[in-house]
Amino acid sequence: MKPAPFDYVRPASVGEACRVLAESGGGATVIAGGQTLMPLLNLRMSQPFVLVDINGIPELKGVSRVEGGTRVGPATRQADALEDETLARHLPAFITALGHVGHYQTRNRGTIGGSVALGEPAAEMPATAVSLGATIEITSSARTRSVPADEFYVGPYMTVLEPDELVTGIVYPDWPDGHLVLFREVAQRAGDFALVGLVGALALEGGAITRAGIAWFGMGPTPIRARQAEAALVGASLAGIDAEAVARAAVADTAPFDDHHASAEYRRTVGARIFARALRETLDLRSAA
């Protein structure tokens, strides 16, 4: 379990990093926390010619407030994000989901950008970005662009990111104060990728839902936005919500698969249940408050 030989560069700026990526012609891979990449390198499933270490680029780290939202630097450690007061105040769903990512030890090294950019379909952070309506900021030597999270993922571990591009920020839009967090997952062991899970946010006003953003993880080749459920919820009064019916609508958008840990049927069956339960408990919490 030794990686194939590679060159290692540790650029000090985004520009320098992008230049290396461009010059490598697709043969470079970015490393941040290495929690997924290192095993892939050791298994030789990933064999880059150049490893671009972005840990020395200060501008890629940290959390900041931007117009209408919160921007998270991709090289921000998961452990640091979990302790961040700005995120706790503005993005409670993000914090809830992040607490389920890996383990205490892996979060010390793992980064937000690594998790978002990897695109593991059963992981929490890609689905969180999709559900909250985040935008992925992408830069290359040639151009800079922003891609909505729900257009970023195209398949398992596949994104629209080109080989010469670098994720430079993830911007999560603000949700109304007091919005509710929707989160539930089932994983065989603590810290595992989920068999099935969902994450999202609900905003309420005057006893009715005004905004809903919900996404599944572990329910298809990418994080999957529960569009039908969102549509059913927005505008609905709390009294009028049939949690089970919304859950069925949510599952209707999914495309889960069989693996030796769980069947697609299990994922659909349990997915509907945890969706309905999450909805009921979240809304009950609200009505009790």
Partner: peptide, 17 residues
């Protein structure tokens, strides 16, 4: 006895496949 196989018994159907 994965969670899916436990549901096989609870629901008396082949949830786990």
């Amino acid at each position: 006895l994965t969670p899916a196989r436990v549901l096989d018994v609870i629901e008396q159907r082949d949830v786990s496949g």
